[in-house]
Amino acid sequence: MGKTVLIVDDSNTMRKIVARSLRQAGIDFDSILEAADGQEALDVLHANQVDVVLSDINMPNMTGLEFLKAKSEDDAIKDIPVIMISTETGADIIDEAKSYGAKGAIKKPFTPDLINETLGPLL
């Protein structure tokens, strides 16, 4: 069965750029799902089989950190790995993200190679 990635970002164009960067990095997902904020991401995870999540942090409605916290408390989806992909990659924010189970972080601006390095070990 092919792998599915969920890209979470309030910017429609950034979701497109992340999807394009995955292809440029040679990471071949059968399905790419999208969500515009943390709440949408939780809904997508409950409705689909997702292998890995790439999530922004600074989003309206439900931020990436709030999404991670809610996900970590939900037994049905808590084990799905999440990589943060954001301008917000200060040590304090990343430490908080990791305390909620994030597996790593990619700083914007990013290259396809950086995505490959960070995401590759999880696949």
């Binding site: 910017s11 950034m14 301008t87």
Partner: peptide
């Protein structure tokens, strides 16, 4: 999409300043 892209560039510039 153009407005969203320019907003995202502003976001990255601000993130670079923050760092």
């Amino acid at each position: 999409d153009v407005k969203d892209t320019l907003g995202e560039i502003a976001n990255m510039v601000a993130g670079g300043l923050k760092e």
